[in-house]
């Protein structure tokens, strides 16, 4: 039991991850109107009770916050989100036929981190024309439904978009190991 994950303490037989407590307290403060001493105290208390009653498996190696990468990621995310409403509107108003052809493709990420996989899958929901249908943790493969993906060039573009998104996610949240996986762009 000596190999605790970073930023963790032991309370009795439970392991308390301090970042999780901080995060839950922040959410608590967002629900109340502004941070006062009483709000912070009650937030920490509620967070500790939650973490002790509903223990989560430790997230290791965890995630880092890289400010520059985070800004790039957030700006691009907002841009993608605004753009994504466009082509779909066009297809909804236009005569989208009975036989619109789509595709389901599998894209294997270069990193093997669950967090990067989850982050990429969530951020993909902002990318126009793609929808995550399934995911395979063992190989870090995401299966996407590509709207209107009826030729190889379009599918290649979708694959490239996923890998570029993975790079932005890693540069915002990745560990050093993830960054190395991205840098070794051999495949």
């Amino acid at each position: 039991m000596s190999d605790l994950p970073p930023f963790s303490v032991r309370v009795g037989r439970r392991v308390v991850q301090l970042p999780l407590v901080v995060w839950l307290t922040v959410i608590w403060l967002l629900m109340w109107d502004g941070p006062s001493a009483a709000n912070v105290a009650s937030g920490v208390a509620v967070a500790l009770v939650l973490v002790l009653v509903f223990p989560l498996p430790p997230l290791d190696p965890g995630l880092r916050i890289r400010p520059v990468g985070l800004v790039v990621f957030a700006v691009r995310f907002a841009f993608d989100l605004l753009r994504s409403a466009g082509p779909l509107t066009w297809q909804a108003f236009g005569s989208a036929g009975r036989d619109t052809v789509n595709s389901v493709i599998g894209v294997t990420l270069r990193t093997r981190s669950d967090l990067i996989l989850a982050g990429t899958a969530i951020a993909l929901s902002a990318v126009p024309g793609t929808l995550v249908v399934d995911a395979r943790l063992a190989t870090s493969t995401l299966f996407l439904h590509v709207l209107g993906g009826a030729d190889d060039a379009q599918l290649d573009r979708a694959r490239a978009a996923v890998l570029a998104l993975e790079r932005r996610v890693v540069r915002a949240f990745g560990t050093r190991e993830d960054l190395r996986a991205i840098a070794g762009d051999a495949r």
Partner: peptide, 11 residues
């Protein structure tokens, strides 16, 4: 039959 490529089926 409306899918051009279906890699999930293969997987």
């Amino acid at each position: 039959h409306l899918l051009y490529v279906d890699e999930l089926d293969e997987a």
